[in-house]
Design a protein around this nucleic acid. Structure first.
Length: 306
DNA sequence: TGTACCGGCTCCACGGTTCC
DNA sequence: GGAACCGTGGAGCCGGTACA
């Protein structure tokens, strides 16, 4: 695990990385709870076969803005190098923002994989590494340690070297899953899709109705018994505020103050009915949207329940 | 802790079905 | 034919999640 602190060494390593086709990258940030967070480390894996992190490069860039800018110019802005992050939006804030090119985000990939293909409780890197790639329990306790302290502890460096390893493995697995679920609509077998849908529709309705019923009963029971937390659930309360004004009052205020506004008012069926005569003399802008629906029809198939 | 984004919830509109 | 109801889907609000 090369931990590079010397600027000349980091510049040399960046020069070598420019020839890599793909890099798996992670960062550690100091003072993240303040308004001025500082980039502390940039960890990079150029070899996805490295499962231990021994080949992961760790650049110490704390309070070295020139080095960070050099990394952005040579690596982040380089269209020829694919860069893979988990939650790239966060890392990009410290690494060039819109200057960054050819970025892949494993968090976004994971979100787009249907649950049935890869069941997982959430899309954290730790969860994906454990559930999709079968890494042993991933310890993320050091994630929120003090990355502004120097020297960094051996535990922090051992933690830092593994994130690009997890990112690389998770990335490979997500690409495999993506291939399974991204099928061009033009080449889909509609007969097979229809048959499969109708085969599982009955089971889904059975399960879905039970889940909905259980949720309703749980919410009612917990509310009635003043229980806000159970082993598996937490009851949360939220309120929504809606404000109303009489249209006549609003119209009068607009006229009195000669207020100019182009904001359109959506005419609900009730408003159209109430102001039918007035609206006849006003220019009405129509917005037509189209929706696509699926409707089950009878199927003569012994394997389809209904 | 700050920021961006996602998903649950709710309201509303529309089309289809059922009933009188 | 019209009213009532139901299922579906769009839009918008708000809380939760993701990262360090």
């Amino acid at each position: 695990m090369p931990y590079l602190q010397n600027p000349e060494e980091i510049i040399g390593a960046i020069a070598r990385l420019k020839f890599a086709p793909i890099l798996w990258v992670d960062t550690e940030v100091a003072d993240y709870k303040t308004k001025q967070p500082r980039l502390s480390l940039i960890q990079i894996s150029a070899n996805s076969a490295d499962l231990t992190g021994e080949q992961v490069l760790i650049f110490d860039v704390l309070d070295k803005p020139d080095l960070i800018d050099h990394f952005i110019d040579e690596i982040m802005a380089n269209e020829a190098i694919a860069k893979v992050f988990h939650n790239a939006a966060f890392d990009k804030k410290f690494l060039g923002g819109s200057k960054a090119k050819n970025i892949t985000c494993t968090l976004e990939l994971a979100k787009n994989i249907p649950y049935y293909l890869a069941p997982k409780p959430d899309n954290k890197l730790k969860t994906l590494a454990e559930t999709l790639c079968h890494f042993p329990i991933v310890n993320k306790d050091l994630q929120s340690s003090d990355w502004g302290l120097r020297p960094l502890s051996q535990e922090q460096l051992d933690y830092a070297k593994l994130d690009p390893v997890y990112t690389a493995q998770v990335h490979h697995r997500l690409l495999q899953l993506q291939q399974q679920c991204q099928i061009a609509p033009e080449t889909e077998n509609i007969a097979n899709l229809t048959r499969r849908y109708r085969q599982i529709e009955h089971d889904w309705q059975m399960l879905n109705s039970e889940v909905e019923h259980l949720k309703t009963r749980l919410k009612a029971a917990m509310s009635a018994q003043n229980v806000d937390t159970t082993v598996g659930f937490k009851l949360t309360f939220s309120s929504r505020k809606a404000e109303y004004v009489k249209l006549a009052d609003l119209g009068q205020a607009i006229a009195t103050k000669q207020f100019q506004s182009d904001t359109p008012l959506k005419l609900t069926k009730a408003l159209q009915k109430e102001f039918q005569d007035l609206l006849a003399d006003l220019p009405i802008e129509e917005k037509i949207s189209q929706t696509v629906s699926l409707k089950s029809i009878d199927l003569d198939d012994p394997e389809v329940p209904f």
